[in-house]
């Protein structure tokens, strides 16, 4: 038996909206300690990794480990039934054929229930090695989203360069070439800060269209954390306060 209740259901709506353009069918791993999900996009270029801790739920019960095969596209349709200030409860029995989703609005006395049919997915799992990232950039999530959108109109690829003094996003294409350079900025307004933790410089290239899809999650957190290592995929991380973390992994592009 699994049951989890989230008072702020909007968070779950935002999480589903943040991943529905990247992954289609996913196995949701339910355990007594929380909910996790790991899935790649069809081209195996991007991977979504979600970890939600039981502590973040108003009520959480999972007697055993379970795997719930879910079509994210269908889950996104069901989540549309939720109002932004609904409380959301997820329920599934052992060997369940469906996931029950309940939206409650205690103020308006409105309750919505939906039984989402579960699917069987034999998805491969990826072993993601623990990596010591030699560059970690913490940047305002709205600002990073804006930079990616603007650069995408100039080139489909961005080169990210880090060093101790700045992080640089550079593009070149038939329009021309240029870069956005952000230095360490510890402005008193916390959410405007750019924090660089660079022990080794990194220079890699990425497809911006994936970054734009990842940035859908910027509504979940005021900060985006970019973790880079010269030999590893980029990690774009959004911490979900009091609940967990949503991470996106993106493989680099290499110059021929």
């Amino acid at each position: 038996m699994f049951e989890a209740k989230l008072t702020e259901g909007l968070i779950l709506k935002k999480i589903v909206e943040s991943i529905k353009d990247i992954v289609t069918d996913v196995n949701i791993d339910i355990s007594p300690s929380g909910i996790s999900l790991q899935a790649m996009d069809s081209s195996h270029v991007a991977l979504v990794s979600l970890n939600l801790s039981m502590d973040g739920f108003e009520h959480y019960r999972a007697d055993t480990n379970m795997v719930l095969g879910v079509s994210i596209a269908n889950l996104a349709k069901v989540m549309k039934l939720a109002d932004n200030n609904d409380q959301i409860t997820l329920q599934a029995d052992q060997e369940a054929t469906h996931l029950k989703i309940i939206f409650e609005n205690p103020k308006t006395e409105r309750t919505t229930e939906f039984n989402l049919n579960l699917i069987t997915i034999d998805s491969e799992h990826l072993a993601i090695p623990e990596t010591e990232y030699s560059s970690v950039v913490t940047i305002n999530s709205g600002e990073f989203s804006k930079i990616c959108k603007e650069l995408f109109s100039l080139s489909e690829t961005v080169q990210i360069t880090t060093n101790t003094d700045y992080v640089q996003f550079s593009v070149e294409g038939e329009v021309g070439s240029g870069q956005v350079r952000l230095g360490h900025n510890d402005s008193e307004k916390k959410e405007d800060q750019t924090i660089l933790e660079v022990s080794e410089s990194v220079q890699q290239q990425f497809a911006i269209r994936y970054l734009n899809m990842f940035n859908k999650a910027s509504t979940l957190s005021s900060f985006t954390r970019l973790c880079l290592h010269q030999e590893q995929p980029l990690v774009v991380e959004f911490k979900i306060d009091n609940l967990g973390v949503l991470k996106y992994f993106l493989a680099p592009k290499i110059s021929d």
């Binding site: 790649m40 081209s43 195996h44 270029v45 991007a46 991977l47 491969e124 799992h125 990826l126 072993a127 993601i128 090695p129 690829t157 290239q205 497809a207 590893q232 995929p233 992994f249 493989a251 680099p252 592009k253 290499i254 110059s255 021929d256």
Partner: peptide, 14 residues
């Protein structure tokens, strides 16, 4: 030109 690498080059599938 630039070639897009896949995650399978970095992460072991099991």
């Amino acid at each position: 030109g630039r070639t897009q690498v896949r995650l399978d080059s970095f992460f072991r599938v099991y």
